[in-house]
Every structure is written in C-alpha cells, then in structure tokens.
Design a protein around this nucleic acid. Sequence first.
DNA 1: TGTTGACCTTAACCTAACTTGAGGTTTTAG
DNA 2: CTAAAACCTCAAGTTAGGTTAAGGTCAACA
Lengths: 167, 167
Amino acid sequence: MSETNYVKNQLKNPLKTVLSVGEVAKRTGVSVATLHFYEQKGLIHSQRNAGNQRRYSRDVLRRVAIIKVAQRTGIPLEQIGKALSVLPPGQNADQHHWQQMSEQWKAELDSRIAQLTDLRDQLSMCIGCGCLSMAHCPLRNPQDKLAAQGAGAHFYPTSDELDEPER
Amino acid sequence: MSETNYVKNQLKNPLKTVLSVGEVAKRTGVSVATLHFYEQKGLIHSQRNAGNQRRYSRDVLRRVAIIKVAQRTGIPLEQIGKALSVLPPGQNADQHHWQQMSEQWKAELDSRIAQLTDLRDQLSMCIGCGCLSMAHCPLRNPQDKLAAQGAGAHFYPTSDELDEPER
DNA sequence: TGTTGACCTTAACCTAACTTGAGGTTTTAG
DNA sequence: CTAAAACCTCAAGTTAGGTTAAGGTCAACA
C-alpha cells in the first residue's frame, strides 16, 4: 500500500486516472514490449512511480488507438509520431487538437485512396486488353506519385522499351 | 562472339529476344541486385548462358512491371509471387493468363480501397465529434478486417474501457 | 590481346516495427 | 512475511525488402 493515490484508484473504481503498463496493454491490445517501444520512439509518454514503474494517464489509450488506426492506413510510425506531437504530451488534449489530428489523417487517407483508385482503374483497363497489347496498357506509364514512398520504382520504361509479344 | 544467337540479337535489333540482367535493370528501373533478389524469391526466372550469366526472356519486363504495380498497392512480395505463379514461368503467357492476374489484383485493390474508405469515413465522423466523446467516436470499434494484416492490433477496447476526459 | 565494364556468388549490412530473453526489482495477494 | 505476478533495463533476434561490398570471372571493343 505504498502508492496511496494509485491504490485508491484501484479500489473498484472503473475509471482510474493512472494506469500501469499492463493495464494499458490489455486495454489497447498491444504488448507491454510494444508500449515500451512506442515510448522509446516518443509516440507515448509516461510518468514513473516511486518504484520506477510506468504510470500512464488515460489519454495514452486514445493515443494508442490512433496509432493503430493510422498504421492500418499504411502510415509509418515516424510520421504518426509527428502528427501525434501536435497533441499536448501527457495531459488531456482539447477538441481543437483532436480535430487537427483527424483532419490530418483524413487528408493522408484521401490521398492514398485516390492513388489506389487510379491504379485500380488502370488495371481494369488491363483486364479489357488482356495486357497483350503493351502499347495501350496503362501498366506502362503509371503516372502516380506513390513510387516515392516505396522502396524501389524510380524509373518507368517508355513505350518502346517494354516488350510486345510476337503474336 | 561466343554467344551466337545472343549477339545476333544485339546487333542494332530494337526487339531483342534475350536480355542481360543489366538491360532488364535499366528497362525496369530496379537494380541488378534487386533482380537477383526477385529471382531468389521465385518472382522471376532466368536462363544462363555458357559463361553463367543470366539471360532473360522479354516477359520478365512485364513481370517486373507487375511486381512494382502490386507493391504500390501494398501487397507483400510473397503474395505477389503466388499470383505471378499462375503465369507460365519463362515463356510467353497468353491473354487468359494476364486477364486472370489482372482480375486478381483488381479484387485485392478493391478490397484495400474499401477498407481505407471505411476508415476515412469513420475519421470524418471523428472530425465532427472532435474525438472528445469517445462514447460516439468510431475510433472505438474499427469493425474492419485490416487488423489481421498488421503486426499488432488483435483486441479493441470496449466502450467503457476507453477514456472519457473530464470536461 | 588486353583492358575495361558487366556479371557472378556469398555474405554482411540496413530500416522498420517489433518480439524474445536474461537477470534483477516491485507490487500484490494470502 | 513471503511467493507469485508484474515491472524494469538492456541486448539480441526476427521478417520484409532490399543495398553494399569483396573477390573473382566474362565479354565487348579498339
């Protein structure tokens, strides 16, 4: 019974104001190690109690939720961290902060969706041509900006460089 | 002048039937090392000449183009490899093969686009609520299947487990 | 024919995003 | 008060998708 305030919260209080790493792990569905990792990367923050154990304020739950949502869109952790940094670290963010974040994500998502949609439409055309005629196949010149994100793909062959099978 | 057929093709013929690794690299925009890597992973195939150098048939250009397109959609190499395996390795695929592939990709893309779109729409709602009211925020229960692809995210908190800031 | 440039293989290294393990301290429950 | 569960740190391992380097062979061209 050393952590008076903490223990007070533990006593059947459904809305604790501080959370241990294990509690956060259970509630967010990420492992304890991952929470350590996120903290190391600056995505979340914690206080320490007298015994050097992490104590989180409840906003960490929301932060982790946001991290997961963003990851599912394919946004890398580093970028997520930058966006999260607009939120006051530690304590509760106000409506404005969250709106700011949400709008940022939405823009990112919109852009990704647009890119994928383009790609799909191009592929649809490919289905029509059976990709037999490279001269008219949109695979030839992608015309999008996603390439910059991926590992490779910095050059696209011009029409006369791609193969045209002998019929 | 040892590689008779090969050299014959080299002589100012714009449509060579065999390509060296360097040529493929230039035309596809991926590095030679990456081509080795893809071959090792079974994504592309090659023959060897008398001097043990790789010689590619022209279909490799299209294969690599497809790999890149697929990668931009976020599909992992292993999955790309499986889809590519429906194509006859080495020689020219017919229209049916390519159509089969294109349709497979399109389905994948459609699904990914749908997931991202859902996510965006949920986020749009969040912008409205400012994420201040977790009780109504869609971030709470994602309801999608993308989680299975990511590294973590196997559990989502129920409504009373997420934090509701003190106003 | 000889010298570059293109290729070959093997092996190590790189970033992202984690996971696993070892060895030691704190908290909690009985 | 004590044993077990939860935590701590630090280091090493893992997968994906490549890149870089070392040391040696092959080919193209004057």
